[in-house]
Amino acid sequence: MRKKLIVANWKLNGNWAFNEVMMSELSLGLKEVQWHDLEIILCPPAVYLQQLNGLMTDVPILLGGQDVSEQFFGAYTGETSGQMLKEFGCRYTLVGHSERRVRHQEQNELVALKAKTALACGLIPIICVGETLEERDSGKMNAVIQQQIQSVIDCLKDDISEVVFAYEPIWAIGTGITATVDQAQEAHAFIRGVLQQYSELCGQKVSILYGGSVKADNAQVLLGTPDIDGLLVGGSSLMSSEFLAICLSSLNSK
């Protein structure tokens, strides 16, 4: 059975006081819940990992990085290594988020190297893939996504079954526009098909998340589709009541 994941990406948000309040509210809202096969992962800015790690003693939440360097150590100013993330309690890390691909010109090969380094450090990379509106409208969506996945397969080989993928249509991130359920399922089925072409086991084992203006009112229907195994939540993860509702709705899905 594939893991069900709810991932909160705080992006460039949070502060010391906000973090304390948020964790207190999440702790209260989650303490009576039996999660079974669900994992909740919080990806804050790296500077707050130590604080949040100390606040999670009674909260069923795991930590993740928002990014990771492809380097293990050395003269790489501004980078955060996988060992550093691991030392601060991370179990996961995002890799290749569309904002990294666009703002920092991260190419497919670099994203694949970051995923490989994350695995070597004992982290599970959540590898983001997705298309722009222009690419979708011009019929290039599948080709773009396949290239993104193929770069990871070429780099990781059989280790590809140890990662998580997240489909995030770039045109739906932070815009308030969500892909329809049919659009999301179609993209997820395509991604799973690409993985199955490499290995039937990989296609069956790898969890694929949906990210793109996820809210409490669309979470359950998205999770009810055959190939969506979890959610990558942006803005809604900064509101405790909204994020709790998303987490709780996942318990009632497939």
Rank of each mutant, 00 (worst) to 15 (best):
residue 1 M to E: 06
residue 9 N to R: 03
residue 9 N to D: 04
residue 13 N to M: 03
residue 15 N to T: 14
residue 19 N to Q: 10
residue 20 E to H: 11
residue 27 S to P: 04
residue 30 L to S: 01
residue 33 V to C: 10
residue 36 H to A: 15
residue 37 D to R: 11
residue 37 D to I: 05
residue 39 E to D: 13
residue 40 I to F: 08
residue 44 P to F: 14
residue 44 P to L: 14
residue 44 P to A: 13
residue 45 P to D: 10
residue 48 Y to L: 10
residue 49 L to T: 05
residue 52 L to K: 03
residue 55 L to T: 00
residue 60 P to L: 13
residue 61 I to C: 00
residue 64 G to E: 04
residue 67 D to N: 15
residue 67 D to K: 08
residue 68 V to N: 00
residue 68 V to T: 00
residue 70 E to A: 06
residue 73 F to A: 11
residue 74 G to I: 03
residue 76 Y to H: 12
residue 77 T to R: 09
residue 80 T to L: 05
residue 82 G to F: 12
residue 82 G to Y: 11
residue 83 Q to M: 15
residue 86 K to T: 09
residue 88 F to H: 06
residue 88 F to R: 04
residue 89 G to C: 11
residue 94 L to M: 06
residue 95 V to S: 01
residue 97 H to R: 02
residue 98 S to K: 02
residue 99 E to V: 02
residue 103 R to I: 02
residue 105 Q to D: 10
residue 105 Q to C: 01
residue 106 E to I: 02
residue 109 E to R: 03
residue 110 L to E: 01
residue 111 V to M: 03
residue 112 A to S: 12
residue 119 L to W: 07
residue 121 C to W: 01
residue 121 C to H: 04
residue 124 I to H: 01
residue 126 I to W: 07
residue 126 I to N: 07
residue 130 G to F: 00
residue 132 T to W: 07
residue 136 R to W: 10
residue 137 D to V: 11
residue 138 S to Y: 05
residue 139 G to P: 13
residue 145 I to R: 13
residue 146 Q to A: 15
residue 146 Q to I: 09
residue 148 Q to K: 02
residue 149 I to Q: 02
residue 150 Q to Y: 04
residue 153 I to R: 08
residue 154 D to P: 02
residue 154 D to A: 14
residue 155 C to G: 04
residue 157 K to L: 06
residue 159 D to R: 10
residue 166 A to G: 13
residue 171 W to R: 10
residue 180 T to M: 08
residue 182 D to M: 12
residue 183 Q to T: 09
residue 185 Q to D: 08
residue 187 A to Q: 10
residue 187 A to F: 09
residue 188 H to N: 01
residue 188 H to K: 03
residue 189 A to G: 03
residue 192 R to V: 12
residue 192 R to H: 14
residue 193 G to Y: 11
residue 194 V to S: 12
residue 202 C to P: 00
residue 203 G to T: 00
residue 205 K to P: 02
residue 206 V to C: 14
residue 207 S to Q: 11
residue 208 I to S: 10
residue 210 Y to P: 08
residue 215 K to I: 03
residue 216 A to H: 05
residue 217 D to S: 08
residue 220 Q to E: 11
residue 224 G to M: 07
residue 227 D to V: 09
residue 227 D to E: 07
residue 230 G to V: 00
residue 231 L to S: 11
residue 232 L to T: 04
residue 234 G to F: 14
residue 234 G to Y: 14
residue 236 S to A: 15
residue 238 L to H: 11
residue 239 M to S: 15
residue 239 M to C: 14
residue 241 S to L: 09
residue 241 S to I: 03
residue 244 L to A: 09
residue 245 A to T: 07
residue 248 L to N: 13
residue 248 L to G: 12
residue 248 L to E: 12
